[in-house]
Design a protein around this nucleic acid. Structure first.
Lengths: 202, 202
DNA sequence: CGAAAATTTGACATGACTCAACTGGAGTGG
DNA sequence: CCACTCCAGTTGAGTCATGTCAAATTTTCG
């Protein structure tokens, strides 16, 4: 019999702090946030979103780790993004168009998220336009990161990309299987293994 | 003696239409936009932004074509984005942090842009919060495209990427040198030439 | 403990790069 | 308007980074 996972009902505090750092919130805004975001726990290997489904929620990771990926025609998995504590993850394309997603979001560890539904987010934007600004800034930052990633991928060979990954996500490397790192870097697990091997002997 | 380039003073109309399609504007907002965006013409090969400078303006392309790229340690050029009519281009990282950029933005053809300065954009956000929303949506769309691009780059080989490029930018392919297409696709011009050769004979 | 998942290793295949040489067209100055 | 340069594109030979496949080994976790 499985244990029923306990969800920390105070997790909203983390999100409120997160928002407040970006821009002070009034009490009403805080209540609005608290009322619209729902905590939810996913077990390792559980899916938050599956290919073919519409992405109905925005996820804010309270604890744990998620990966968002697609599977190409030849069956290879490509990880677009990891999300750990204090990161956002969702397929924005599917979310805003409300069309089926080509992406999967899956728990790499047991993970607690705060979720807001599509309609609730739109409503939040209307009731508190401040969130237009907050989310504008969030998305800008994601875009900047994504651009850097694209350049890394085009400009450096696999060894360097791996080194960069270790620098940028020092904590992650020990928490997740190398297979995932490989499919984030855009190489095969076998090749990553060979790279790691070289490193050790040096 | 060079001809003095003429700038279409009515180009703002295009931008106002563009905004209005996303979200209706009041007359005051329209005036605000008209007062803050300045038209400017760049000649082919002229730089809008150079590596090492701070990106001080947001650019909206009225006509022509720009490319944004970086040059990696080994001297190879990587094009992040083209911008043609009705597209936005700027190094958001540098723009918002006001730190020197690692990117270049250069005119591929004679190009007219509408520019808004950093402080003016912040002021616009304050005076008309509607633009927080408009730019949130714009950036979301850029992010979605950038994600697709990353996946393309990781998932498909050069031939397929080239076919996709032709589908996605049918007009561009005839307007710009193949060298640029190659450095957008992340391959060498020589290899692109070989791919194109194969296509013809089929 | 046992099954499933992750990692490693090696032989071989291949997509894409490098370099160098050549061609043709476009722009520029005399 | 010609001559010249420069830039873009092509071609080929050789090389290198990374992929494929299959098998053996190790780790993880129920």
């Amino acid at each position: 019999m499985e244990k029923k996972p306990k969800i920390d009902q105070t997790s909203t505090t983390l999100l409120l702090e997160y928002f407040s750092k970006m821009m002070p919130l009034t009490d009403e805004e805080k209540e609005l946030v608290a009322s619209k975001f729902q905590p939810r726990l996913y077990r390792k290997r559980q899916f938050i979103l599956q290919e073919g489904d519409v992405c109905n929620v925005f996820n804010f990771v309270v604890s744990g780790c998620l990966r968002m990926y697609n599977i190409d025609e030849s069956g290879t998995t490509h990880i677009i993004q990891f999300a750990i504590e204090n990161w956002w993850i969702s397929d924005k394309g599917s979310f805003y168009s409300q069309k089926p997603s080509a992406l999967n979001i899956e728990a790499v560890e047991d993970t607690t998220v705060l979720q807001i539904k599509h309609d609730d987010l739109l409503d939040l934007y209307v009731k508190a336009p401040k969130f237009d600004r907050i989310f504008r800034v969030l998305v800008e930052n994601s875009l900047i990161k994504m651009q850097e990633r694209l350049l890394q991928n085009m400009g450096s060979d696999a060894r360097i990309r791996y080194e960069e990954f270790l620098k940028q996500y020092p904590t992650l490397a020990n928490r997740i299987p190398n297979t995932h790192i490989a499919s984030f870097l855009g190489i095969t697990p076998e090749f990553l293994s060979k790279i790691r091997n070289e490193r050790v002997s040096k």
